[in-house]
Amino acid sequence: MGKKRDIRVIALGLIRDDERIFVSEGYDPVKQSTFYRALGGGVDFGETSLEALKREFQEEIQADLTNIHYLGCIENIFTYDGQPGHEIIQLYQCDFADSRFYQLESLVFSEGENHQHTALWIDISRFKSGELTLVPQEFFNYL
């Protein structure tokens, strides 16, 4: 028997400003490829996905959210850094409460000790054209 793998439940926030969305940049060292994903993170035991969404945005970029609407659930089975992963994504549409976030070029934030991430606004057309990679693929159904 291999190591028991868990399914992660995560809450992600789709923040859109006209034809651009706010995403964080990731890198897969095995595939040597850069990808982008909406911000958010894991739902803790005893916490609703909505609470997790708000907490993650606070922890990661000190942002309050407003106009939050539940969009749907995406099941994401993937490989990252050579390891299989499985996520149940609770996806929300939301806006930044503070308009200053809409002026940002980019933002560097930490996730844990050694994880530096960059969050930035990217034109949806760059994902639709295939120039940049947005994950998971099902995300396009909500754009």
Rank of each mutant, 00 (worst) to 15 (best):
D6V: 00
G42Q: 10
K31P: 14
G2D: 15
T133Q: 12
Q58S: 08
F35T: 02
D17R: 09
L143W: 03
V43A: 10
D123M: 14
Y36V: 13
G40Y: 00
I77M: 13
L132H: 01
Q93A: 14
A38Y: 10
C94Y: 02
I122Q: 09
T48F: 02
F22P: 00
V23K: 04
Q137M: 08
F101Q: 00
I124R: 02
T34N: 09
F57H: 12
R126V: 15
Y92M: 03
V30K: 15
L50K: 12
E56K: 13
Y80T: 05
E87C: 05
V43Q: 11
D64Q: 11
R37W: 06
E131Y: 13
S110W: 09
R126T: 15
V135R: 14
D44W: 03
D17Y: 13
P29Q: 08
L107S: 07
D123V: 04
R37K: 14
S106G: 01
E131P: 04
K128D: 02
A38Q: 08
T118L: 10
L65S: 01
T34I: 15
I124E: 03
H115K: 13
F109I: 03
N67Y: 13
R126S: 14
D64Y: 14
K128M: 11
E87R: 05
D64V: 06
G130S: 10
V108G: 02
S106W: 12
W121K: 04
I74G: 11
S125W: 08
E138L: 04
Q62E: 13
Y36A: 05
V9H: 07
F109K: 00
E111R: 08
A97R: 02
H86M: 01
I122Y: 06
L14E: 06
L50S: 14
Q116M: 10
F101D: 00
C94H: 00
F22K: 00
K54L: 06
L104I: 05
E105K: 10
R5C: 07
V43M: 08
H86I: 02
F35L: 10
G72R: 12
I61M: 08
F57G: 01
L134N: 03
S106Q: 13
S33W: 05
Q32P: 07
T48W: 06
E51N: 08
I89K: 02
I124P: 00
G130C: 11
S106P: 01
G85H: 10
D98P: 00
G40Q: 01
I10V: 14
G42E: 08
E111W: 10
R126G: 03
Q137G: 06
S33L: 09
T118N: 04
R5P: 03
E51R: 05
G85Q: 11
L14M: 12
N114A: 03
R126F: 06
I68N: 11
R55A: 03
Q58H: 06
D28V: 07
T118F: 09
Q83K: 04
G41F: 02
A119N: 04
D28A: 15
